[in-house]
Design a binder for these strands. Structure first.
Length: 330
DNA sequence: CTCCGGGGTT
DNA sequence: AACCCCGGAG
């Protein structure tokens, strides 16, 4: 039977043996883990629960305060959704407990709703994340390529069931995926499920799960403007929609696609250019340094302000903008 | 340097 | 199907 596994890892959001998991901790950590690895999440998570120990405390934080703590984690709309969902929960005065109830909150989908329901409330559901997909694809030797594979595994997981301790089963399966049944060089000789693994039996496990073609990312380029005056620079708050929404950074030009035969980028030195990779394109920004003369009058847009390098710590900057600011020596 | 993993929304 | 970001592995 698949449902005989031990939870291996101790993590700050996990309950001690015999204790009940804190839904706020599990929810917060799951959202962070949607985009980042465990070692990175641990420090972010600890800062969050120190600053906001309960969902009540969290619900009183502004989006700007949350983004300041979230900076560097990426996928910034998740911080916004987390805030919206927690405000809703506080208003309702009750933490939703079932997969069906949870899935209607912003930013909570199939995986996160099942993770919270099973880990915190012992609901009989199995969250299917990348680890579970990989483990199931190998155990049952399924060669359906991603992303279609995911739906197949979700159905398979419903058939397998969640056992008597759904939360432990879910976490054990994810631990197995991350520590033993790894994407590369899995430790099959240490695996408690070796004897029932069809992928191991058929020696297909290394190539599972199968994923379809990867497409080349297009490149974009533009200019970032570092506008200085007396040890201060101009930063601006980005729009509340689209890429890096609600975050701060130096002003930039538009980010243009390279035309097919266009000369790539200029001959700027490393110090004057940053490269940053997003999900669907790679960005190159040449940095232009502009000094304002004392007699010049600068008219700032409503979303712009002058700040010193010290003051910039109080604004949420994405990693792209940190790369630029770190080069500065005012 | 390049590649890749990781859920949810629209 | 496209969009949303970053860090770790190799």
């Amino acid at each position: 039977d698949l449902r005989l596994l031990l939870v291996v890892r101790t993590l700050p959001w996990r309950a001690l043996p015999g204790a009940i998991a804190n839904p706020y901790y599990v929810y917060l950590s799951e959202v962070m883990l949607q985009q980042t690895t465990v070692p990175t999440v641990i420090s972010y998570f600890n800062r969050f629960i120190t600053k906001w120990p309960t969902i009540e405390a969290f619900s009183r934080a502004t989006l700007d305060e949350i983004l300041l703590e979230w900076q560097g984690l990426g996928y910034y709309s998740r911080a916004k959704n987390l805030k919206l969902a927690i405000e809703k929960i506080i208003k309702e005065n009750r933490f939703p407990q079932s997969h069906e109830a949870l899935i209607h909150y912003p930013g909570i989908g199939d995986y996160t709703s099942k993770a919270i329901a099973s880990i915190c409330f012992d609901q009989p559901v199995l969250p299917v994340d990348g680890n579970v997909i990989r483990v199931f694809a190998r155990i049952f030797n399924i060669s359906t390529p991603l992303p279609a594979l995911k739906k197949e595994i979700i159905i398979k997981a419903e058939q397998v069931g969640a056992g008597k301790r759904p939360g432990d089963f879910a976490q054990a399966l994810m631990d197995l995926g991350s520590l033993i049944c790894k994407p590369k060089n899995p430790k099959c000789d240490e695996c408690p499920l070796m004897s029932l693994c069809d992928g191991y039996k058929n020696k297909t496990y290394q190539s599972l799960p199968v994923r379809l073609e990867k497409i080349n990312k297009p490149m974009r380029y533009g200019t970032a403007y570092v506008i200085q005056n007396h040890g201060q620079i101009i930063i601006e708050k980005r729009s509340d929609k689209g890429l890096l929404a609600n975050l701060w950074g130096v002003p930039t030009s538009g980010w243009n696609l390279f035309l097919k035969d266009e000369k790539k980028i200029g001959n700027a030195q490393d110090k004057e250019r940053v490269k940053h990779v997003f999900t669907h394109f790679t960005l190159y920004l040449d940095i232009h340094y502009i000094k304002i003369f004392p007699c010049e009058v600068v008219k700032l847009k409503s979303n712009q302000k002058f700040v010193t390098l010290d003051e910039i710590q109080n604004y949420a900057l994405p990693t792209l903008m940190k790369k630029i600011v770190q080069k500065l020596d005012l």
